[in-house]
């Protein structure tokens, strides 16, 4: 790490002061306020808010959605990382751009696109309607948009890692007689397990926390299509601040785990390379 030969002591102190105030104001204060508001009526009230029936239903839906979207995007991330990092072919750049698109498209527009596909007047709306399958304003729609918005996370984590490792180790394994799957399980995967973990964590955090895109396709039916972030909105709009912040405190602990694991995995990788 380059040490600071340039700035004088006074300048250093100034930079530290400005940076710390900024971090405190925008990052630390919000966490403190969430916890203070969530526990403002005591631990018992906090627990009652968390174990409220509607909250539990919303939690169940959020967990279900993440449990479907994250594994699907994990498989996709591994597949596309293998394709892009280990082979030279035409159109690689195009694939990379396509992977990043969900991050560049505003969440509301992501939701809108799925309404245009599966809504009543959408392309496939009539088709699914014939079979009495509802996608928009129902759970399938929530799952579909969640897959869309969290699609890039594992792939973006793995592609640089696999590319940096090159193909030498895989070539060695295969020339020694290992099959493709054996090579993947025993050579490629162990090398990037921290990267995969990191990708899963980020993907999961976004899947559980997505608000805008899900709000468009959910229809806000309590107990049915209400995810945890949407439930926070409802409680907040009903001026039930304590309950809204009690649930938010759950997300603070999820975010803490996410950030901790992220720090651990990036440290692991920087040590290795």
């Amino acid at each position: 790490m380059p040490m600071n030969t340039l700035a004088s002591k006074a300048a250093n102190a100034m930079i530290t002061l400005v940076a710390l105030s900024f971090i405190f104001l925008f990052l630390i204060l919000p966490i403190l306020v969430i916890l203070q508001q969530g526990f403002s009526e005591g631990v018992v009230a906090w627990w009652q808010n968390i174990s409220d029936e509607e909250t539990l239903l919303a939690l169940r839906l959020t967990l279900t959605v993440a449990a479907i979207a994250v594994p699907l995007n994990l498989l996709f991330g591994i597949m596309i990382a293998w394709t892009i990092a280990k082979f030279q072919f035409r159109g690689r750049e195009l694939l990379l751009t396509l992977i990043d698109l969900p991050l560049a498209i505003p969440p509301i527009i992501s939701g809108l696109m799925y309404v245009l596909l599966f809504g009543i007047y959408g392309w496939f709306g009539a088709f699914f309607n014939n079979y009495d399958v509802q996608i928009i304003y129902a759970v399938p729609g929530i799952i579909l948009v969640t897959i869309f918005v969290t699609l890039p996370y594992v792939a973006r984590e793995l592609i640089p890692l696999l590319s940096k490792q090159g193909t030498e180790e895989e070539l060695a394994a295969i020339s020694l007689g290992a099959s493709g799957l054996q090579t993947f399980w025993r050579v490629t995967l162990p090398n990037v397990k921290w990267g995969i973990l990191h990708g899963i964590i980020l993907c999961n955090a976004r899947a559980m926390g997505e608000f805008g895109a899900v709000a468009v396709v959910s229809g806000h039916i309590r107990g049915e299509t209400n995810t945890l972030p949407l439930h926070i909105e409802i409680l907040y709009n009903e001026y039930n601040f304590v309950a809204a912040f009690a649930i938010s405190s759950l997300f603070v602990s999820l975010a803490t785990i996410t950030l901790l694991l992220k720090g651990m995995s990036s440290e692991h990788h920087s040590k290795k390379h």
């Binding site: 990052l27 969430i34 969440p107 980020l202 955090a205 559980m208 926390g209 997505e210 608000f211 805008g212 945890l228 972030p229 949407l230 926070i232 909105e233 938010s248 997300f251 603070v252 999820l254 975010a255 996410t258 950030l259 992220k262």
Partner: peptide, 8 residues
């Protein structure tokens, strides 16, 4: 900001 849901 990336780890916390936007509603929160």
């Amino acid at each position: 900001p990336l780890a916390l849901p936007t509603a929160v």
